[in-house]
Amino acid sequence: MVVVDDVHKWFGNVHAVRGVSFELPAGTVAGLLGHNGAGKSTTIRMVAGYITPDAGKVSIAGHDMTTARLAATRQMGYLPESTPLYPEMPTRDYLEFRGRLFGLSRAARRKRAEEVIERCWLKDVRDRRVGQLSKGYKQRVGLAASLLHEPRVLLLDEPTSGLDPSQVRETRDLVRELAQDRTMLISSHVLPEVEAICDRVIIFAGGKVRAAGRVQDLASSTGAAGYVAEAKLPASVSLSVLDNLRNIAGVMAINTSSLDAGWVRLDIQASRESGDLRETIARAMPASTIVRELRPKAASLESIFMRVLEQAAREEGTLAPGANSQSIADAAASNVAGGKS
């Protein structure tokens, strides 16, 4: 439904997006992750047709974004970052205007405007000027406008940035609901949000895709498993216990942190090939210790994300020694050059 094929973008001599490719089959909900300046927004803007790529191709529902932009944009709803709206227009009039832009007939406009007002919980503010609305409402007006022409593809750039926690939850609920029958691409740096909504993630760093796929698949492909244990270790045995644990085949590192009342949290990193080590770990504890918790660590999106970024930094380092901090600076510069990439 969405195809991005080897897309490049330069801002001046800053190579902001460096050969990005991905494909979203119909019904996919994908999250675009990365630090600020990693090229997420530039990429989503190229997918939306706002910026033309310097090389490569974008197509939506089979329509090429450069040669058939009007046909492609008719299939697409787009919510730009920070949701720019016309402050002097009432909600209802704004939706009418967007409907006209997309060439909806008068009857279709009326009907669809009512539907999206209902769906995005905007009934209370239909006659209020957009400029007077809270950020959360503005975000929903933007979402409503992007849904007006019943697009098959929805692109959301940072849909919850700048919202307070309750607005974040409202917007997230709405997005999750919308995700049920659409192809979606959501750019975000809020990892739990992506984890909650998306079934696939695309991780960006330095203008390149560093990892892409389902969260579970990424978890297994990025190596390392881990366990968390909480135990009461008498001071006399604690060093020998740690030695015992380190000697277990497969254990790579242990971090300890003291909790209150003599409890210690052990963060045990192990290689994935070593299988389930819980029993071995339990046996390594002497009888004088009490273990109140021992569980395998679920690979969170955050740990995957951090590992992918570390890997990316290492690769950059080997490609050009010392270029790593430079590439991050480049990406930051592209942020400035692109207005806000």
Binding site: R45, A48, G49, Y50, R69, L70, A71, T73, R74, M76, Y78, P80, S82, P84, L85, Y86, R98, L101, F102, G103, A145
Partner: peptide
């Protein structure tokens, strides 16, 4: 204000 982004990504030449 950035509203142009909404116009340039709509089916408007």
């Amino acid at each position: 204000t950035g509203t142009v982004e909404g116009l340039m990504t709509a089916p408007v030449s």
